[in-house]
């Protein structure tokens, strides 16, 4: 296998509220000898909200991001579930509708770009599973996480709608019984925790407009993991991470029960197992204490 190389779409949170996610992505890529070319030209994907206001503009901006990955002739790797969904959905719609693609390209031509449809778009989690291989990760583990019960939190926008999501990777994920993150936990030597909320919504997207709904969903998820004896949660999505890590006070109040668990980004979990330091993984940036890890 030659060296793996991808175009990295960081999304916005990795550059702001989850610096630890950016740090751990680069640390893990380094350990796995994966080359990530950052798409510094990329804009925000609209985070599933811009399209509520202006669908066409959202398509144009996301197509522009993919066009930059195409320029590098690389698969685009995302590290945020919502970036993944918005980008993959744009790709799906343009690849299956020549008229729409032409309309979008008419706009992109104004800035000298073209969306061709030649780059795949996949989340880092599935790039690791499909292209790198969990067996290889397993062989590289130097600090197995066998002391820890780890609850996977998949995040909606990596598993639903499944028909679209399963276009983006070889690993066929069942949205009602996903296994990719469980498999990754096991590969890192950890004990995967099964609980009802692992494939449910964290509420992040309505945090401002429906704070109670958001807090109940996040609180219920943390409680579900806690009740199955989880020591920590792990997620591939920085938005789920923000909701579960930084909002425990609201979540606890909403469900009438004190809840808080350390929440790792998927990259941090891999990094820990591969022997990265807590500095490299940005563990100091967590709001809920992760000291014992």
């Amino acid at each position: 296998m030659g060296k793996l190389k991808y175009a990295l779409f960081t999304g916005c949170t990795a550059k702001q509220s989850t610096p630890e996610q950016m740090m751990s992505t680069m640390a893990v890529a380094n350990k796995l000898d994966i080359e990530l070319i950052e798409l510094t030209e990329a804009s925000c994907c609209g985070a599933s909200h811009l399209q509520d206001y202006d669908d066409f503009l959202s398509l144009v901006l996301n197509a522009r991001n993919i066009a930059y990955a195409e320029k590098h002739e690389l698969t685009m790797v995302t590290i945020c579930n919502t970036c993944q969904l918005n980008t993959a959905m744009t790709k799906h719609r343009l690849d299956n509708n020549a008229e729409l693609k032409a309309k979008v390209n008419e706009k992109l031509a104004e800035v000298g770009l073209e969306y061709k449809g030649t780059s795949l778009v996949t989340h880092f989690l599935y790039a690791i599973i499909d292209d790198f291989g969990l067996d290889k990760i397993k062989e590289m583990v130097v600090k197995p996480l066998n002391k820890f019960n780890i609850a996977p939190f998949y995040g909606c926008h990596n598993i639903r709608p499944s028909e679209l999501q399963n276009e983006s990777h070889n690993k066929k994920e069942n949205p009602y019984n996903p296994t990719s993150l469980d498999d990754l936990i096991i590969a890192c030597g950890g004990v995967n925790v099964d609980y009802e909320e692992k494939n449910k919504c964290c509420g992040f997207h309505v945090e401002l407009q429906a704070p109670h709904t958001a807090a109940v969903l996040a609180g219920t998820a943390i409680a579900g993991a806690t009740d199955q004896n989880a020591d920590m949660m792990v997620t591939p999505c920085p938005l789920c991470h923000l909701k579960l890590d930084t909002q425990t006070k609201h979540s606890s109040e909403a469900i009438g029960r004190e809840v808080a668990l350390p929440v790792l980004h998927m990259q941090q979990m891999i990094g820990l197992a591969l022997g990265c330091t807590s500095e490299e993984l940005g563990l100091k940036h967590h709001v809920t204490e992760v000291g014992f890890i």
């Binding site: 916005c12 949170t13 550059k15 702001q16 509220s17 990329a42 804009s43 925000c44 609209g46 985070a47 909200h49 811009l50 509520d52 206001y53 202006d54 503009l57 901006l61 401002l208 407009q209």
Partner: peptide, 22 residues
């Protein structure tokens, strides 16, 4: 209201920074 401004706010932010200003 907070919901509509949240949707439209993305546009303003992208116009100014490309990225979202959280």
């Amino acid at each position: 209201n907070v919901a509509t401004r949240h949707a439209v706010g993305f546009l303003h932010s992208i116009k100014k920074h490309g990225l979202l200003d959280e």
